[in-house]
Amino acid sequence: MELLVDLHTHTITSGHAYSTLTENALAASNRGLKLLGMTDHGPSMPGAPDLYHFGNLSIIPDQISGVRILPGVEANITNHEGELDMPLRYLEQLKLILVGLHPICYQGGTSEQNTEAYLKAMENPYTDIMVHPGRPDFEMDLEKIAHASARLNIPLEINNSSLATITEKARARDNCRSIARYMAKYKGPVVLGSDAHFWDRVGEFSEAVELVREVGISDYLILNTSPERVLEYLALRRKQRTDSNQRSIKHTRSIA
């Protein structure tokens, strides 16, 4: 399996990452990657960039060191309703929107509440990919999440950083293995992400690859084996979003 895309990386702008976009792009090029997501944390994360950062991402070159760049965000779920910490007008400008739960941005709740928050965020038309569901910070119904991923065609991430560096690594590995098994069962789309916070981890998927091999996830379910597949998927999401918005406008007019 050849992985040519890393959609989950952070730059120094995230506040707790330590490399520039240029350094990350050069690392991606050296690993043979063709497509790189620049997904710094949304503004509810301490140290994260101001919204002006996201409003100015159009100045980023399309390519750096021969690698195509997708400027985006790792948006934070902020409550049990699955709301994100990014205003709509900024989400509309971004090329890639990852969504996940982080303890400092979301207070947590019961397994049912956490699962519902994750599912509602997954149903958001602006969500492209749901990240690190296997992190042990919040108890969730992982099978229900995997089933929804397949039904909605929203990829779930197998996060290499969760498997390799998170403090509660054993619990994270158990959760990630469960997610991977459910994804293999329901045949939902999968993304392997480095979640790199330093340039030397960009394109590092070894732990995630080992896990998906262990549980038998087919290569065709893994989106980031091909930049073309990723770009086609993102184009489809934007078309679905446009169609959804148009239906909402027509519905509002018919009521009026």
Rank of each mutant, 00 (worst) to 15 (best):
A184L: 04
M1E: 09
E116R: 08
I59P: 00
G108M: 12
L36S: 08
C105G: 09
N30H: 06
N30P: 00
I69S: 04
A27P: 02
Y90E: 14
S44E: 05
E207K: 05
A170P: 04
Q113E: 15
A48R: 04
I60T: 15
E23S: 03
L94F: 13
Q240Y: 02
T110D: 11
R177M: 05
F138Y: 15
P43W: 05
T11Y: 03
L101S: 13
E204I: 09
P71H: 01
S226N: 10
Y126S: 08
K34I: 05
E139R: 15
N160A: 05
L223R: 09
N153Y: 13
T252C: 01
L221Y: 08
E74P: 00
Q93V: 10
A146L: 12
L26A: 05
V5H: 08
Y52K: 07
Y90K: 09
G42S: 12
N24T: 03
A150H: 10
Y126C: 12
A256G: 15
L96Q: 12
N79Q: 13
H80D: 15
A170R: 15
T225C: 14
D40S: 10
L94C: 14
M38K: 08
G100W: 04
L101Q: 15
L91N: 10
E232I: 06
N160T: 03
R171H: 14
S65Q: 04
H8G: 11
I158Y: 01
H41V: 13
M1D: 12
P136C: 12
H102Y: 13
Y118I: 05
R241A: 01
G134E: 11
L26Y: 01
D195K: 00
M130G: 12
N224S: 08
Y126P: 12
G193K: 03
L152G: 13
E139F: 04
P133V: 07
G82T: 14
A170Y: 13
G15D: 10
W199C: 02
D40K: 12
L84H: 13
N79R: 14
S218T: 11
E228C: 03
T252R: 12
E2G: 06
M1L: 07
K250F: 11
G42A: 10
D40C: 08
I255Y: 13
A196E: 00
L26N: 01
I179D: 09
L231G: 09
T225E: 11
R229V: 14
V209S: 04
L91G: 11
E232H: 12
L192G: 06
M130C: 15
L35W: 06
T165N: 09
D243V: 05
E207N: 05
T20R: 01
L91K: 14
